[in-house]
Amino acid sequence: MTTALFSIAGAVAVVAAVVVVTTRRIVHAALWLVVALGAVAGCFGALHAEFVALVQILVYVGAIVVLVLFALMLTKAPTNPLPALTTRRSPFAAAVAGVLFLLLGTGIVIAFGNEKIKPVPAGAAADVGTAVFRVWVLPFEVLSVLLLAALIGAIVLSQRSGKLSEPDETVSSSGKGDD
């Protein structure tokens, strides 16, 4: 049962990830990213790693995607379809993705072979919590500062976009700048 749930959630994650990179609307890509990250949380849930699944939903679906959507809104990114940006390199990108899929798939089959997926043993949430607050505190804090800087940068860029088109000097009717 665990293997079936994991496989279904994994398939949904892969399909949603493909839609994320192939859609022509950036807002739709962000919303499909929610589906992909939710399916990854489903993979964790299938493995009985509920704590990690909830952290996946809270941090990635709840925070990262919201940050991406805010950045899109604040920077006034175009939300209409942009076919000219993606069609030229699509065959090359598909070939690279196919080669990477084959390499990673072969590596996983060689490494794990016919092993069955085993659920996480009981008490794993306490171990994860201890590791997070003892070993990984600094990286989490650095990440939070990085996300804050990205949000502030998006706000600054959106405020500056109107000021860039204004001339710095006033030009008189003679064509010379006022000194």
Results as ranks from 00 to 15, higher is better:
101 F>K: 00
66 V>H: 04
71 A>E: 05
71 A>D: 07
101 F>L: 15
82 L>G: 02
87 T>V: 09
98 G>L: 08
103 L>F: 09
69 L>C: 01
78 P>E: 15
102 L>Q: 02
99 V>K: 04
94 A>L: 14
95 A>V: 12
64 I>F: 15
72 L>F: 12
73 M>D: 10
67 L>S: 05
89 R>Q: 10
92 F>Q: 09
102 L>T: 07
92 F>L: 13
76 K>M: 07
70 F>L: 15
66 V>C: 04
94 A>Q: 10
94 A>Y: 11
105 G>F: 01
76 K>E: 11
83 P>G: 05
99 V>W: 04
65 V>H: 02
94 A>M: 11
86 T>C: 02
87 T>M: 10
84 A>D: 12
69 L>F: 02
85 L>Y: 10
96 V>W: 08
104 L>P: 00
95 A>F: 10
63 A>Y: 10
78 P>A: 13
69 L>K: 01
85 L>R: 13
64 I>A: 14
71 A>F: 00
67 L>G: 05
89 R>C: 02
75 T>N: 14
83 P>L: 06
89 R>Y: 11
83 P>E: 06
84 A>N: 07
74 L>N: 03
69 L>Y: 01
88 R>S: 11
104 L>R: 04
87 T>S: 14
74 L>Y: 05
67 L>M: 08
83 P>Q: 08
99 V>C: 04
89 R>F: 10
63 A>M: 15
84 A>S: 09
85 L>S: 11
76 K>N: 12
89 R>W: 12
81 P>Y: 05
78 P>M: 06
84 A>W: 09
104 L>S: 07
103 L>C: 09
97 A>S: 15
92 F>G: 13
68 V>P: 00
88 R>E: 10
69 L>M: 12
82 L>A: 11
69 L>I: 13
100 L>M: 14
100 L>E: 07
82 L>T: 11
65 V>K: 02
64 I>N: 07
70 F>W: 09
75 T>R: 15
77 A>E: 09
105 G>R: 02
92 F>H: 05
104 L>D: 03
64 I>H: 08
101 F>D: 00
95 A>P: 00
93 A>N: 14
75 T>G: 07
63 A>K: 07
102 L>W: 07
91 P>N: 03
63 A>H: 05
100 L>N: 06
63 A>E: 12
85 L>C: 02
63 A>D: 06
103 L>D: 05
86 T>S: 15
67 L>T: 06
93 A>F: 13
102 L>Y: 05
90 S>R: 15
79 T>R: 15
93 A>D: 12
67 L>I: 04
70 F>R: 09
66 V>I: 14
67 L>D: 03
99 V>L: 14
80 N>Q: 13
68 V>M: 14
76 K>Y: 09
76 K>F: 08
103 L>W: 08
96 V>Y: 06
73 M>P: 00
68 V>W: 02
69 L>S: 01
95 A>R: 08
102 L>N: 00
81 P>A: 13
73 M>W: 14
102 L>M: 11
97 A>W: 11
98 G>Q: 03
99 V>P: 00
79 T>N: 05
95 A>G: 04
78 P>T: 12
85 L>A: 14
